[in-house]
Write a protein that binds this DNA or RNA. Sequence first.
DNA 1: GTGTTATTTGCATAGGTATGCAGACACATC
DNA 2: GATGTGTCTGCATACCTATGCAAATAACAC
Lengths: 339, 339
Amino acid sequence: MARKVTSQDVARKAGVSQSAVSRVFTRGASVSPDMAARVRSAADELGYRPNALARGLITGRSRIIGLVVAYLDNPFYPDAIEKLSTVLQAQGYHLLIFTTGKHGIDTDRVISELLDYQVDGIITASINLSGELSERCAAAGIPVVLFNRAIPGSGLSAVTSDNLTGGRKAAEFLLAGGHVRIAHISGFMDASTSRDRLAGFRAALDRAGAPLHALVDGRYDRATAAEAARDLMARPDPPDAIFVANDHMALAVMDMLRFDLGLKVPQDVSILGYDDVPMAGWPAYDLTTLRQPTRRMVDATVDELMAKLDTPNRAARRIEIDGPLVVRTSARIPEGYTP
Amino acid sequence: MARKVTSQDVARKAGVSQSAVSRVFTRGASVSPDMAARVRSAADELGYRPNALARGLITGRSRIIGLVVAYLDNPFYPDAIEKLSTVLQAQGYHLLIFTTGKHGIDTDRVISELLDYQVDGIITASINLSGELSERCAAAGIPVVLFNRAIPGSGLSAVTSDNLTGGRKAAEFLLAGGHVRIAHISGFMDASTSRDRLAGFRAALDRAGAPLHALVDGRYDRATAAEAARDLMARPDPPDAIFVANDHMALAVMDMLRFDLGLKVPQDVSILGYDDVPMAGWPAYDLTTLRQPTRRMVDATVDELMAKLDTPNRAARRIEIDGPLVVRTSARIPEGYTP
DNA sequence: GTGTTATTTGCATAGGTATGCAGACACATC
DNA sequence: GATGTGTCTGCATACCTATGCAAATAACAC
């Protein structure tokens, strides 16, 4: 186990001071070309690289971003995380993962650990951290950006798709398709995402004078959503269309309808999802769904985080990114429909 | 932005030395109950927690594990990562993510960054890091465990399922089912995982005197695998069974067979996968597959890493975990089959 | 009382880097 | 030659915590 090579070692070898070595590796510092060359050659020879921990300690910037995530079984998140990591990496930041477990237990402990590592910023995904998150992070001066969720009144920046509009588009598409008993399987109601999708959906139905035929909470969980679908179809007046709050549940619903209940999609029931995860495009499902533009959401998240890092007291921003309805075959297509 | 509260502040407030504060937060250090109480109360009041960076700097242990990952679109990985993170978190470690991109570009840069952060250990997943990884990490004294891949002769510990046996079980099941033209769509051959699955598969066929009817490289990629399947079926003598090297590809193959070619699974072709990802159990696919026991693989990975942390010059271990064949309906079930 | 051992505490330093400050130097200007 | 301007460089210190060492205290036996 070779002893770690430090800037001292390099300095000695190059016959300069430790400060000089440091300056060579700090961009924006004043160094003569001659010295830079000497130092770099010595550093290469010894295999020296600055210690990120020591650097973070003194600069007060760790270049670590905490990512808090509850679960990864909805494939929307792995995709987003991969992109997040790549984009941040290109800017010299890295993601430190914190998992809260499905039921958001131990939020308190997670936040503490997050702060222990002196993270420069925090991104949360698939998660609802209570008010204490915002307070403690604000107290520590750490910027937070919520990804795919918003907490109104929390003073935290948030990036989502335009869920209200998405909900509206869903309703309009189903109405145009001539559906009359339109149901919704929602995500849990503590999530702004669920509330907004429902609100937009409901508003558009109202505007058309159509009732929301039924509303069930699917809790963003496959099993729950499948049960909800079974219950809906067992009613005396089953729906002829179901808007499901995300693809992950929508696929479970389709499985339930087709394989357990022997129904045809979309002939018997139209299904609409939300997210456009890769599987939605697979022929076995071919799910009509509202796309969340992951790429743009990720870029916006990182931009917002970087902006907050540069400008500490910047006001929180609420960023909503519009995504298209991706028409496939799981929902009846209105006559003469053009996108 | 509140100034950071340090052990000095706590010491002052509690009327003790900084060392005392440190000792209270270092388990195994000698402190009187009286002082511990005083310090803790002062710390709570000020909201003090030890700075992990400073601590890492002096102890030489950052409690950060680097996770190197190429891609997350195969759902086997998000699942594993979530579990890895949870298990490590319980032991006071956290995962710092490094993505290499699909084509393993920039491996060199990734390793450098990894070392910059003074990670205590490294776990790689879905990735083939060349010999330089092992060399540089060995030089720096950082333990490495490969997850779901092995590099023979590299001297690195590796945890996989028992791929040889898995391949064998696949062949035996297909043979018992009476198949005679048995093909394989493999992963890329740089991966030990692919090679072992194929080797086990081939060995069992040989032993039974059956030929491997066809072999194509699917590169662990959906599109490539689907094309491979199309090509196979376009031959004058198409296979009656295909063993696909992972579920991710197997599902694409099933889609291709059923929706593009109008074939029936398993009546026209039997399909076998590998992994048992959640989707394999969904009724739309109901894929017969070899389970990789994620939970046990993750536990073994973490155990091995911790062991290497405790015993620096420990010999590398190669851990293979047996998983069952999960029989569903995508492959013909042999007469009188019992598991 | 002395002596012995165990426990607790503070002092001082180390760990690896960044940076304010002042000195050194070169060069130009008058 | 004196003064000013600008560029480099080294010194010394700070960031925050852990820990070896020695001093102080306590506990105990005789």
